[in-house]
Amino acid sequence: MDKPNKNQPVSRRTFFGDTLRTLSALGLGSLVGFGARKATSEELVWQLDPDKCVQCGQCATECVLDPSAVKCVHAFDVCGYCKLCGGYFKPDAKSLDTAAENQLCPTGALIRKFVEDPYYEYTIDESLCIGCAKCVKGCGAFGNGSLHLQVRHDCCVNCNECSIAKACPSNAFQRVPASKPYLYRGVQRKDFYPEK
């Protein structure tokens, strides 16, 4: 142990206290320094890879928000504008009109609009969409797969651990820098990253 200071004797208690304090500070510093080897100044957000998604429907139920922050988006560039849309109509639809009993979407969030014969435009009312992926499954199975799911960042509360990500059977969720939050289908992918 050090020799006590002549003028102001250091008690054993103070000495131990100071030593432990310094050691704790050093320990904390090194712990954080080691952990922060690849620290980023950017916030991370959750992203859904539509190519990994298997449309299990759990995005609608697992999110801490109700309705879910995962919503269906539409890549118009990829869409075939089909009259018989696998994402819009139930497989056993009696007639190809907008009657509710024919629609696959449980909340009527997918809106069908006539463009010109025989083409129809499909848009999503995100305030109604619950992210159940029924339309995504239908579109992928019978159409071009232009309907796909994305985490909408105006809704997402960015939990430290996304509960959908934990439940996702195909590991389609990952954390990405907040400057590139979306992963869109089709050619628009590159165009629609917000420029930062």
Partner: peptide
Amino acid sequence: AAQLFGIERFPRPQFESDYQQPRMTSPDPR
């Protein structure tokens, strides 16, 4: 497989009317 490689079962139509394709929106994170 169809989804993975984005098979275009139905190619994008050539519209005769002056149809304007809507743009996808990307709401920013915080």
